[in-house]
Amino acid sequence: MIAFEQVNKFYGDFHVLKDINLTIQDGEVVVVIGPSGSGKSTLLRCINGLETTSDGVLKVKNIQVNEKKTDINKLRRNIGMVFQHFNLYPHKTVLENITLAPINVLKQSAEEAKKTAMYYLEKVGIPDKASSFPSQLSGGQQQRVAIARGLAMKPEIMLFDEPTSALDPEMVGEVLDVMKALAKEGMTMVVVTHEMGFAKEVGDRIVFMDQGRILEEEMPVEFFENPKEERAKVFLSRILNH
């Protein structure tokens, strides 16, 4: 479970996150949408401590993320993250990318880690790329490796920050398919995306953000058919019309 209680964040004088209250249950798929600069990435990155909160309480699995005594590395084992630009390690093969954290964080044997890695590569549909380097893969393949890399830690939560925004259109589908399968298996997911089809199909809830605030929190059907906030309406008409 992820719980934001009255969370605020500042970058210097700039108020990025304003009075965030949000609870995400285990197994829930929450899709965060909103215009550029509204604070979506920042919200997501607070969950695994890549950004610190300025005040309020943020708990993941009942552990306060920003507490001094919290072992952040331990908390992060449970939270996978997928980035817009994949962030694969270019000097390591696909297999090494995936086994690095299981071996060095979970202390798995190389053999065990390899077995797990192959299982997830199988799952994302590219077991034949295990010994390739990231630069030899297409964007869609790289992003699927990144997802497999996250899953290999067997996390309970997966965070996605615009995972398909950097992809050529013909590759978006293959990544979304992997994510949909994951959602259907009951993974807790927080997804920042502009893919409204994905949001409708597997999202349990839409969180709409604007200027650092959560303006609307709604079931997808309700949100898309009947947005309440004026800014949500404007935003929707803008992205659905292109």
Binding site: R76, G80, M81, F83, N87, L88, Y89, L100, A101
Partner: peptide, 14 residues
């Protein structure tokens, strides 16, 4: 690139 440190840290590496 900054994303390399972020990817490493978010996977639980120190």
């Amino acid at each position: 690139p900054k994303g390399q440190m972020e990817a490493g840290r978010s996977s639980g590496l120190s």
